[in-house]
Structure formats: C-alpha cells, structure tokens
C-alpha cells in the first residue's frame, strides 16, 4: 500500500540524529552499512566493475565533505547522506505497485524487493538522492534503518541499533524515537537546534542534523614581551639583551 499510513497513537518515529559538529567524515558509517547490508537479511548490495577503472555499486549512505565560508575563514562540514525516512515521503506515494511503503508502527520507509518492478520513479521523487537502483536484481534499494538489527532479540540490547550508528568512532550518529519528546535524540535536537535538510521542499524528514557549534575555548590573553618576565634570571636576561643590542 503506497498511501502514507496514519500513525497509530503512541507510534514511534525511528530515525537518526547526525551531529555535523563531531562528524569527521571518516566514512566508517558508510562502509559499515555496506557490509551489514551485504550480509544481513536485506541481501547482497551489488558492486559493478569492482577491479575495473569505473568501480560502482549500491550504497545506502554516502559521505560528502563541504567547505563552508565563515567570517573570513572556512570550515569543513562532513555530511553523511542517507534516507531520512520522511513523514511526507513522495517516494512512497508515487510507487505504482505498493513495493515502496512506510511502516505505521515506526515510520521506517522500506522497499519490498519481491514486489518492486524497478520503474525508478521513487528515486526521482526523492530530493535527497537516497535511493539507488540494483542493476543486478532490477529493483530499487534504500536504507532500511537496519530494521533487521534494531528489532533482533538475539542481539544484546545495546547492539540493537543501526550498523552506521554502531560504527561511528566519534559518536556523531544517534538513533532513537523522534516522536517521543523525552527521548535522548529528541532532547539532542531540541538542545542543539537540529535541522532538516531541504526544509523548503516540505518532505518533513525524520532524521535531523545538528549544526556545527561555534568553538569557544577560553584562552588567557597573551601578555606583551617583558611583562611576564620577573625575578633575577629575567633581570639578567634583560641586561644581556640590552648589552647585545648595542
């Protein structure tokens, strides 16, 4: 069913909160995602021309780096880009088959690879470029928010989070329920002023990005030369300096 579901009262809205202040652009999340989704229940994510001059393949997560001009200086901002599990997901409503759907219970947007006809329209409808076509299976692929991990009771509870979150060495990625204002991710978004990407397009993405903070490291103002030097040693040095300067 490709009508957007009405979330039942108390339904979760699972998603990611990504801290652009601490993301170092190491691509660990992207690689870990690729690995998990090539071995997990989502099936193999294909690679083409692996050893050739034009290697290519399906990835659910792509890490861009940008240079942002900031008061005469510039700052590097790393942006991991993946499905944002939007509330107004046009990729779902354009699907002619019902393969592309949004789960009512937790808001995760998925593609059923058994139903998808590979018309690619959903990828055109996504402003974030989050969907990539699987040329081998002939169906569309996308981030599953590791739905095969986060509910897996055989995993220790602490590990029931998406592979990208588990892999992040700077803990820049946070996973949780954004429908619950008291959840850790919701509080992070509130405290840090979490942002939507391409807000003006109106897709109401679930995933949020925390903007870089202004670095304010308190430093003692530097004293002028001489002022700081005191004592006999300093007096001797001053004398020597004066003698040599003649």
């Amino acid at each position: 069913m490709t009508m957007l579901p009405k979330a039942p009262p108390g339904a979760k809205r699972l998603g990611l909160v990504i801290d652009l202040d601490t993301c170092v652009g190491c691509h660990a999340c992207a690689v870990s995602c690729k690995e998990w989704n090539s071995g997990g229940e989502a099936g193999l994510l294909p690679d083409y021309d692996k050893q050739g001059p034009e290697p290519d393949g399906v990835w659910f997560n792509r890490v861009h780096s940008y240079e942002v001009a900031d008061q005469g200086c510039s700052r590097t901002v790393n942006l991991p880009r993946s499905c944002l599990h939007c509330e107004d997901a046009l990729c779902v409503t354009v699907c002619p088959t019902g393969a592309s759907y949004k789960r009512a219970e937790d808001g995760i947007v998925l593609v059923d690879p058994e139903i998808c006809i590979g018309c690619k329209l959903c990828s055109w409808a996504c402003p974030y470029g989050a969907r990539e076509f699987d040329e081998e299976a002939g169906v569309m692929r996308k981030c599953t928010l590791c739905v095969d991990r986060i509910y897996d009771k055989s995993l220790p509870e602490a590990e029931r989070e998406p592979a990208c979150v588990a892999a992040c060495p700077t803990r820049a990625r946070h996973f949780g329920d954004l429908a619950d204002p008291e959840s850790r991710v919701s509080r992070l978004v509130a405290e840090r002023g979490g942002k939507n990407l391409l807000e003006e397009l109106g897709y109401r993405p679930t995933n949020k990005y925390l903007p870089s903070r202004k670095a304010t490291i308190p430093v003692e103002p530097r004293k002028a030369d001489g002022e700081s030097r005191e004592g006999v040693g300093a007096a001797l040095l001053k004398l020597l300096d004066r003698a040599l300067s003649r």
Binding site: A30, R62, Y66, S123
Partner: peptide, 26 residues
Amino acid sequence: LAAAIGLPKDKDVKPLDAPHFTENYV
C-alpha cells in the same frame, strides 16, 4: 547547496570531497 546540508540558505558552501570518484546511479 547550503539548504541541502541544513545551513541557512545563503551560506557560501563549496563541495570539497565527493563520496565517490566515479559516477553512481544518482
């Protein structure tokens, strides 16, 4: 591009490193 990465839309943003060197599906 600034709005695409969640910054105020008139910020001056330039691509620095692409995620991949060859063309992908997108």
